[in-house]
Amino acid sequence: MRIGVYEHKARKGLIRVSLKIVEGVIEEATITGDFFIYPEDALFELESTLRGTKASWAEVSSKLDEFFSRGVELAGSTPEDFKTALKKALVEAGVHGEA
């Protein structure tokens, strides 16, 4: 089991990502911070989308692109901020290579 935690300072807020990786797969993904995302349940949907994903940057990046292409709205942060936070959390968890 590996744990990766990272805090990313966005333009207007902080994005905290915590990942629990078991056997190369994201078992738990928690995203918190002081950012705004709409619709409100989108954050839970993103966390759910990440669970069960292979812990590689290629897989996570693809899931993020798909998620943010569905019209999710952000205020004070961007999809790139979320990508940065998740990528760095993967690195903190010891995922190397593609991360």
Rank of each mutant, 00 (worst) to 15 (best):
F68S: 06
A42Q: 04
T78E: 08
S77K: 07
A10Q: 08
G97L: 13
L50M: 05
F44R: 12
G94V: 05
E47P: 06
E27G: 10
E7Y: 07
K63P: 02
L86Y: 04
F35V: 07
V60G: 11
D81K: 09
F68W: 04
K9A: 14
I26F: 02
S61G: 15
G97T: 09
G52Q: 00
M1R: 02
S61R: 15
K20E: 15
F35D: 02
R70I: 11
A89R: 08
E7G: 09
K83N: 09
S56C: 13
G52A: 01
T32G: 09
D34M: 04
V5F: 06
V95S: 07
A93M: 02
A89D: 08
F35R: 02
T53K: 14
G24R: 11
S62C: 09
R51N: 06
E59F: 07
E59M: 09
D41Y: 05
Y38M: 10
E59W: 03
S69K: 13
V5H: 05
V72T: 14
E23Y: 01
F36T: 13
E66L: 12
L46S: 09
A29S: 00
S18T: 15
G71K: 11
V72R: 09
K63F: 04
A85P: 07
S69P: 11
I3W: 03
S69G: 12
E23V: 00
A55T: 04
A99D: 10
V25P: 01
S56H: 11
Y6K: 09
L43V: 13
G33P: 07
W57Q: 03
S48M: 05
G33M: 10
G76E: 12
A58W: 09
L43S: 04
E92A: 14
G4E: 04
V95W: 06
S69F: 11
E66M: 06
R70A: 14
H96A: 02
S56N: 14
D81W: 08
Y6W: 13
V17D: 07
L50Q: 03
P39V: 02
F67C: 11
E80P: 00
K87D: 05
E23M: 02
V22K: 15
E92W: 01
H8S: 10
E59L: 07
G4H: 04
T30C: 04
R2W: 06
L64S: 12
E28C: 02
I3G: 00
L19D: 01
L46R: 07
A42E: 05
F35A: 04
G33W: 07
P79T: 13
A93H: 01
V5M: 04
K83I: 07
K83C: 05
Y6E: 12
A93E: 01
S62E: 15
A29M: 00
K20L: 15
F36P: 01
K88M: 15
A42G: 06
R11G: 07
G52D: 01
V91E: 15
I37V: 14
A29N: 00
A55C: 06
V25T: 08
P79W: 12
D81T: 10
S56L: 12
